[in-house]
Amino acid sequence: MAKALIVSDSHGLREELLVLKKRYENEVELMIHCGDSELQTNSKELEGFVTVLGNMDYLGQEFPKEAIEMLGTKCIYITHGHLYDVKMSHLSLAYRAEETGASIVCFGHSHIAETYEREGMIFINPGSIRLPRGTFEKTYAILEAVGSEVSVIFYSLDGERIDHLTKRYTV
């Protein structure tokens, strides 16, 4: 089983990122930050994370606008989402992810925790560990991939599983 920790929109939080890193350091192969960390690119809190540039990342202008990572056999496209107007529609994001050959898309920006499948592609927004929208819970996600089975499990910042957001896919 291949696993990834996915966070986004931490907006300056430091200790919380360190806690999540320590909680999952021996459980995941990949740690993803979907932008708006508001930290510098060389900050110890982001060490080990694949981090992309968010619209509020003025200190970390060197972050890439997008990243492509492999988790087992799954290709993951990572971006913040502001460049694709994800608060309006996910269509442009879907087109870009398709261009990269990704089967999983990780993004942030809206602060809304969600996951869904569209035409064989899985979309994951882990929400925000600082300023959630659509829920009171500060959230992050764990992606688990085994063969054609993919699970997206959401957790509150304190580590409690959020079952109503969690989904399993076969792709």
Rank of each mutant, 00 (worst) to 15 (best):
M1W: 05
K3P: 07
A4M: 14
I6N: 03
S8T: 00
D9E: 08
S10N: 00
G12W: 00
R14L: 07
V19A: 03
L20F: 00
K22T: 09
R23S: 07
R23M: 12
R23H: 00
Y24S: 11
E25P: 04
I32K: 09
C34M: 00
G35E: 07
L39Q: 07
Q40N: 09
T41Q: 12
N42V: 06
E47G: 05
G48F: 14
G48R: 11
V50G: 14
T51V: 13
T51Y: 06
V52T: 13
G54L: 09
N55T: 10
Y58K: 10
Y58W: 08
L59S: 11
F63W: 09
I68D: 03
G72I: 09
T73V: 08
T73S: 13
K74R: 15
C75I: 14
I76D: 13
Y77M: 13
I78P: 10
T79Y: 06
H82P: 02
L83S: 06
Y84V: 02
Y84W: 01
V86M: 00
V86E: 02
M88T: 04
A94L: 14
R96W: 00
A97Y: 05
A97G: 14
E99F: 03
G101D: 08
C106G: 09
H109W: 01
H109A: 00
S110Y: 02
I112F: 01
A113Y: 01
A113N: 06
E114Y: 07
E114F: 01
T115Q: 08
I124N: 02
P126A: 09
P126R: 01
G127R: 06
S128F: 03
I129R: 06
I129W: 06
L131A: 12
R133T: 01
G134F: 11
F136W: 11
T139K: 06
I142T: 08
I142Q: 07
V150Y: 04
V150N: 04
S151Q: 13
V152T: 03
I153A: 08
I153G: 00
F154W: 05
S156C: 00
L157R: 10
D158G: 05
D158S: 04
R161H: 13
H164N: 13
K167M: 07
K167Q: 12
R168H: 12
R168C: 09
Y169C: 12
V171T: 15
